[in-house]
Design a protein around this nucleic acid. Structure first.
Length: 657
DNA sequence: ACAATATGG
DNA sequence: GGCCATATTGT
């Protein structure tokens, strides 16, 4: 337990000694173990609720919940003051707060091709759409990308992201301390010489700085920080965090300025700690976790709050070692942990000590799209199913078109139909999804129906009772010209007769024992099969292994790259280019050179804003779908459709009921 | 390629 | 609890 003894012990970084010029100057050294590494985690406060509040143009201090049928899926912070929780019903919530705003998520209505906000949402006829939220998520991500052009950005979910600020921070440090750019002549070991001692740190713009001795200690608020300052000399690691926190402050204020969303952030030396401290003070706040404050920060925390320990692994460990807090777990020797949970559990051992070497990896492409519906009442005839297939196919149609607007050539390898009855395990059936130039709901529906028939034929005894139907695209990839089915390519209306003739029957029934595959204890890391390496440097292994995976030691291979790992990651130059694009514009409108969308400024004041927003949209979609191969003037759709489609929908009036 | 399952937001 | 996204395993 002497790990907790005090600030002299580092939780990360300086096990290898002082910060050197190499750490600051050599980008190749910006690895997961660079002591100057700065990682942020950012999380939109009560995201769905805020999205709705802003969409509706409501003031930010009114209590609002976002509803999905009779359930609450998000509660904004004003509403939380009334004690409203996610698990309350809407009626309960209204009782707690009579003037509560209740906004239902967008839905697809009957045969409607577009999701929208209708007066009423009926689970018997409507299907929930999260598309509006996905779009807001992309806008936010685009601002991140713009503000942190040189950092890796990992979208962790619809409302969360990790950012690697290390390069930006190093740059700012050098701007501020130019003398550090050159190694002094008389430096004993060249690049590997320690940096000179830093000046004191001004934390005033950094947000919450978690105190070294924990929260409840003597000097509250400023007192604790003042005490910290007096008893500890500043170091460059803390400087890096402070600069990173300034960056995050600017970024969050930019997000607020442009989109009116508040978010919370954590700034630390690694992902796990950044994630933990973004949740420390919410909403609209940020917290910095210095290495020296990490022991106090973690000590009393429930260790299952740590990312990846919230599931079966965490609870198995809690049971095994009779532990609840991180402090409890610190008494478990590494050997014991490894004996019980495998060699790789050193990952857990480290993270309990604030050490986490996992990288911030940009997600380059969406790999699947799922439209799922819990049907009420259950469908008991194949005909009822057709209705929902129509709705699900319609949604997939919209989503794939949207993605293809920005990422041409994107196409799913397969179409999957899943279904569930009661609480049994889901079953699924899939088929190849041949390329066509004429994507339509009907085209999707054709294959969906085929799957549906295969599924329903065997069960046609009147015993059919499906409670969930889902349709998904999987294996989403950018198709090369050569990959496009030749028939379909030249003959768009060809039905590709023999695309699938799968009739393999008999899926295994497996309804019992949800934990049968549960916490299997990996006594050995199990030699992996030579599986297809994924794009992401093949780090993923089994579910459990991936939690426990020990990162490769970056120090051992200084030659492997730093920030820009992915060939298709956007480079800063591109960003300049695009921002410049938006500057040249005709008087009263603007035509996007990429997608030919025309934006008209109603009052000239917001045209620029709209353009920026549009550019951001491109950014974000490329971030998600991968960059477009080149230009490609799209054949103008004008006039062919009465309803705007694809990217244009982005600029439609948001509420349409 | 296909089907099932795990995990997490 | 509903609606997702991603990854892995066995066949």
């Amino acid at each position: 337990m002497d790990f907790l003894a005090g600030p002299s012990k580092r939780s990360e970084g300086s096990t290898g000694g002082p910060v050197t010029y190499r750490h600051l100057l050599n980008h190749q050294s910006m690895t997961v173990s660079n002591p100057l590494r700065v990682i942020a985690h950012c999380d939109i406060d009560a995201a769905y609720a805020q999205f709705e509040q802003v969409r509706l143009g409501l003031p930010d201090d009114i209590p609002l919940i976002c509803a999905q049928w009779q359930s609450i899926i998000a509660v904004n912070y004003p509403a939380r003051k009334y004690g409203i929780k996610r698990f309350n019903t809407i009626d309960e919530a209204k009782k707690m707060c009579p003037h509560l705003h209740v906004q239902h998520v967008a839905t697809y209505r009957n045969g409607e091709a577009e999701a929208g906000y209708w007066g009423e949402a009926d689970p018997r006829t409507h299907k929930v759409s999260l598309d509006p939220y996905r779009r807001e998520s992309l806008k936010i991500l685009a601002i991140f990308k713009e503000m942190i052009p040189k950092g890796e950005i990992e979208k962790a979910s619809i409302d969360e992201a990790f950012l690697d600020l290390s390069l930006m921070v190093a740059e700012r440090l050098l701007d501020r301390f130019p003398h550090l750019k050159n190694v002094p002549e008389d430096a004993p070991s060249g690049l590997d010489s320690p940096l000179p001692p830093p000046p004191p740190i001004d934390w005033t713009n950094a947000g919450n700085v978690f105190p070294i001795h924990g929260e409840g200690e003597k000097g509250a608020e400023d007192g604790a920080l003042a005490a910290d300052k007096s008893c500890e000399r500043p170091d460059w690691e803390d400087w890096a965090l402070c600069v990173g926190a300034d960056l995050m402050g600017e970024l969050r204020s930019e997000v607020h300025k442009r989109l009116h969303y508040t978010c919370s952030a954590g700034i630390a030396h690694n992902k796990a700690m950044a994630k933990l401290c973004s949740a420390w003070k919410k909403p609209n706040n940020q917290t910095v976790l210095r290495a020296a404050a990490t022991p106090a920060f973690l000590r009393d925390m429930d260790f299952t709050d740590i990312r990846f320990l919230g599931g079966k692994l965490g609870s198995a460990m809690a049971t095994e070692f009779g532990a609840k807090t991180v402090g409890d777990m610190l008494t478990v020797p590494l050997e014991d942990m490894q004996k019980r949970f495998g060699e790789e559990s050193i990952w857990v051992y480290n993270i309990l000590r604030g050490i986490d070497h996992s990288e911030v990896t940009a997600r380059v492409a969406t790999k699947s799209m799922l439209a799922s519906k819990n049907v009420r009442p259950s469908v008991t005839t194949p005909e009822q199913g057709h209705h929902w297939l129509q709705v699900l196919a319609g949604e997939l149609n919209v989503r794939l078109r949207d993605a293809r607007d920005i990422s041409p050539g994107l196409w799913p390898k397969t179409l999957v139909l899943s279904h569930r009855t009661g609480i049994e395990a889901s079953k699924s059936r899939q088929t190849a999804f041949p390329f066509t130039r004429n994507l339509s709901t009907e085209y999707i529906l054709k294959y969906a129906r085929k799957l549906w028939d295969e599924v329903t034929q065997p069960m046609n005894k009147g015993n059919m009772k499906l409670n969930n139907i889902a349709l998904a695209f999987s294996g989403l990839e950018r198709l090369e010209d050569g990959q496009k089915g030749i028939e379909n390519f030249f003959n768009p209306n060809n039905n590709a007769k023999a695309a699938t003739a799968t009739a393999t029957g008999a899926t295994v029934k497996r309804s019992t024992s949800p934990t049968s595959r549960g916490v299997h204890v990996p006594t050995e890391p199990s030699p992996k099969k030579p599986r297809l390496p994924t794009l992401h440097t093949g780090k993923r292994k089994t579910a459990l292994d991936s939690f426990l995976a020990r990162p490769t030691d970056p120090d051992a291979s200084p030659s492997i790259n730093s920030g820009f790992k992915h060939d298709n990651a956007r480079k800063p130059e591109d960003i300049i280019e695009i921002v410049d694009d938006s500057i040249d514009l005709p008087d009263n409108g603007w035509k996007c050179p990429r997608c030919k969308t025309v934006i008209k400024g109603e009052d000239s004041g917001n045209l620029k804003e709209q353009i920026q927003e549009h550019e951001d949209y491109h950014f974000a979609l490329e971030l998600q779908n991968g960059p477009s191969p080149a230009r490609l003037p799209k054949p103008s759709k004008t006039g062919s459709k009465s309803r705007p489609e694809g990217i244009k929908r982005f600029f439609e009036p948001k509420s349409k009921s």
